[in-house]
Design a protein around this nucleic acid. Structure first.
Lengths: 186, 186
DNA sequence: GTCTATAGGGTGATAGAC
DNA sequence: GTCTATCACCCTATAGAC
């Protein structure tokens, strides 16, 4: 792996763990096994390196979700597969995490991939719900429901980190699945 | 207001805006109009000041929620009043925000009031749901449903900050209310 | 209680040699 | 491409005067 590549990967990990304000270029360089000169040769600074890291992480989240939501099966089964996928719950969501960072929210360039990820995810989920409308309780609004589902995931991470345990995350998922009329093992 | 009081209030605001890793004692002192000496006279350091600030914020959230959830009315009306209360959505949740902070999650003392807040909120909501069981879809699990509701709020903040708009937050709330069988104006 | 001075280390970036 | 040196500034805390 090239030094450039190692820098981006280190930045991704550290942004996930500590956020933008909590990471220093030096820490990224150390984890990457690269020096100052190397980093500033490949990137103009912390912001540009973070931008590439954030874009890559956002793209990966999208690709994973797209694969799950576009697989075979009913709308219900695809949504519950998406919700029940194994996650490193206590690490939180690598994209959602960034929304708590003042510098990321304040920077249009850094916020853009984050916004785009959730906009895409909400509308993709809304499509799946709309496709399988008769599988769900009657009169349900696809966009509002999709947004609530994404929110449950993001909020589940928050509650899990607060508790130091994955238990509230699992309960939150059980809770929406129940409300969607999907039994625990469905 | 005493200098001590101003320091705690400044710390509360800055923790909300920037999180623990994003705030410096100096910034707190400046906002409070207090000097170094004053801060270190009243508190042993950043961690102790933050601890008092976090405890106070957590207590306030709990008092507000308790007032709403223990008011008059059906379970449905109390829950929807709680969910539809006016919020400064783009600022995020002052307690939930802290769960994204590595130093807070890593410190048992700092995490404790955060954990306690959500544990209390989940079980208080579960009680209200259990009381009004026949008002909701049949066979619904009070604890899982309560957890999902809290998660929707927390995730709603995440989505709103990602979007730079309160719209996803409102949609997420609409989404759960719909799933709970509560019409938009109910 | 609050002030100023000082400390040792980190931050984010630049410069120029190799 | 990567290295080391250097920069001005900020971080968190301590010390001691007032």
């Amino acid at each position: 792996m090239s030094a450039r590549e190692r820098l981006v990967e280190s930045a991704r990990e550290l942004l996930w763990e500590r956020g933008y304000v909590g990471v220093s270029p030096r820490a990224i360089q150390e984890r990457a096994g690269a020096g100052q000169g190397s980093m500033y040769h490949h990137f103009s600074g912390k912001a540009e390196l973070a931008l590439e890291a954030v874009r890559r992480t956002a793209g990966q989240l999208r690709d994973t979700a797209e694969a799950e939501l576009s697989g075979p099966g009913t709308a219900r089964s695809r949504i519950s597969a998406y919700l029940l996928r194994e996650r490193e719950v206590l690490r939180g969501c690598p994209v959602g995490r960034l929304t708590q960072d003042p510098e990321i929210v304040a920077s249009p360039r850094l916020r853009e991939p984050v916004e785009e990820t959730f906009t895409w995810l909400r509308s993709r989920l809304a499509e799946v719900i709309a496709e399988g409308r008769e599988e769900f309780p009657a009169g349900l609004d696809p966009v509002a429901t999709a947004t609530a589902i994404v929110a449950v995931l993001q909020g589940g991470y928050v509650l899990a980190r607060a508790a130091g345990s994955a238990e509230p995350f699992d309960q939150a998922i059980n809770g929406v699945l129940g409300l969607l009329g999907v039994a625990p093992a469905d």
